[in-house]
Simulated assay, not measured.
Amino acid sequence: MQDIIRQFGFSPERFRIRKFGSGLINHTWKVYNDEEAYILQRINDKVFKYPHRISANIRKIDHYLKANYPSYLFVSPLQLADGSSLVQTADKGYFRVFPFVAQSVTINTVENETEAFEAACQFGRFTRLLADFPITELALTLSDFHNLELRAQQFRQAREHADSERLLKAASWIDQALRYEDISDAYTEIVRNKLLPQRVIHHDTKISNVLFDPHQKGLCVIDLDTVMPGYFISDVGDMMRTYLSPANEEEKDFSRISVRGDYFRAIVSGYLSEMGEVLTLAEKERFVYGGKFMIYMQAIRFLTDYLNGDSYYGAAYPDHNLVRAGNQFTLLERYLEQEETFEQLVDTLYAANIQHE
């Protein structure tokens, strides 16, 4: 890494380098000494095939926020002398450096409602501040990332071509996927009839993509590689998928999977505190749908990969992706059990937010 940081203008003799964080896609290091610290990151160009699109998107957003909301903390990569932010190597790919935000912390699991509320505030604020950003200027960094219509098509194709043993093992979860096809149909209707506006969406709202201060207050969002045009259901849905249950998607004991209503309230309250004044009525009416959308999509993606022989996610043990699919279908059922209650709660909180405004 010494040769890499030298290209960013750092003297290797003055800095220490160590692995940092728990990200699975990009590799990250902390570059630091007693006076200053930075984050060095290698972009996984097997996943993100167009790193320059990511760089251009972040640069455009950075310029917009600095011009319109200069007090907002937006952690953008350092620029090189030629104006770019990427160093490309022949054998190791693309690298970039971010300033390290002093006194900031990240967490990997949502432990309380305050964290859920603060994270929802931060993702909502990010999209709200960019409500007037010219969205056509942003490139797609992952095409069809949250295209549920495509994921449903891929599931049907996998079902047609899967071997008989996997089809038999997956039969009950295949039935679940077919039972809830209306979730995919609703997404198709949204896209084809342009029922929701496209916005600047983060697309990866796990809790580790929020920086907190030492007092549990949210500071900003990070990990901006998936920021691109999209629908708000991607962000609120991913929060619901990853915050609501105390058990994550790797849990094998499905009895541990539940949906915590107080965490749902925290997500809605936090997001509406920022986005309530800009959400359309059509978006409000699909707030709860956001959770169904993301949970169902991840469930059929795991199921599709199992039927395809674990060619995308891989498998740490036999039937790993089948277990993951079952986990997500169980989460979907727990979520649907409270759907009516959640709809009423969104109506109440939305009305209160509008009245307050």
Rank of each mutant, 00 (worst) to 15 (best):
Asp223Asn: 03
Met239Ile: 08
Val221Tyr: 01
Leu272Arg: 01
Asn193Thr: 14
Thr226His: 02
Leu168Glu: 13
Ile201Gln: 05
Gln198Pro: 00
Lys217Arg: 13
Asp185Gly: 13
Arg199Met: 13
Val236Lys: 06
Gln153Cys: 06
Leu244Pro: 00
Tyr231Pro: 00
Ile174Gln: 05
Val191Cys: 15
Asn248His: 10
Val210Pro: 00
Ile267Arg: 06
Arg151Thr: 03
Ala171Asp: 13
Ser269Gly: 00
Ser269Ile: 01
Ser269Tyr: 00
Asp225Thr: 04
Leu196Gln: 10
Gln216Ala: 14
Gln153Ile: 03
Ser234Arg: 00
Lys217Met: 09
His202Phe: 08
Gln176Asp: 07
Thr188Ala: 15
Val191Phe: 13
Glu149Cys: 07
Cys220Asn: 08
Glu165Arg: 12
Tyr243Ile: 08
Phe264His: 05
Asp185Arg: 15
Ala158Trp: 02
Gln157Lys: 06
Phe254Met: 01
Tyr271Phe: 15
Gly261Glu: 03
Glu249Phe: 01
Lys252Asp: 11
Gly270Thr: 02
Ser164His: 14
Leu244Lys: 04
Leu272Glu: 02
Asp163Arg: 09
Thr188Pro: 02
Tyr231Gly: 07
Asp238Glu: 07
Met240Asp: 06
Thr242Met: 02
Val236Leu: 15
Ile207Arg: 07
Ala247His: 03
Arg260Gly: 07
Arg159Glu: 09
Glu149His: 06
Pro214Trp: 11
Asp204Phe: 02
Phe155His: 04
Leu219Phe: 06
Phe264Ser: 08
Lys194Val: 07
Tyr263Cys: 14
Phe155Asn: 01
Asn248Ala: 11
Asn209Glu: 01
Ala266Gln: 04
Leu168Phe: 10
Ser208Tyr: 02
Arg159Gly: 05
Asn193Ile: 04
Arg159Thr: 07
Asp225His: 05
Ala171Thr: 08
Glu249Cys: 03
Asp225Trp: 05
Tyr180Thr: 00
Ser245Glu: 01
Tyr180Arg: 02
Gln157Asp: 10
Ile222Trp: 03
Phe254His: 01
Leu178Asp: 14
Thr205Cys: 14
Ile233Arg: 09
Val221Arg: 01
Ser164Tyr: 13
Glu189Trp: 11
Gln154Ser: 06
Gln157Asn: 10
Phe232Arg: 04
Tyr243Arg: 06
Asp253Cys: 07
Ser172Met: 10
His203Glu: 11
Gly237Lys: 03
Tyr187Gly: 12
Asn248Leu: 09
Phe232Ala: 13
Asp238Phe: 01
Ile174Lys: 04
Val221Asp: 01
Val259Asn: 01
Ile190Ser: 11
Arg166Glu: 02
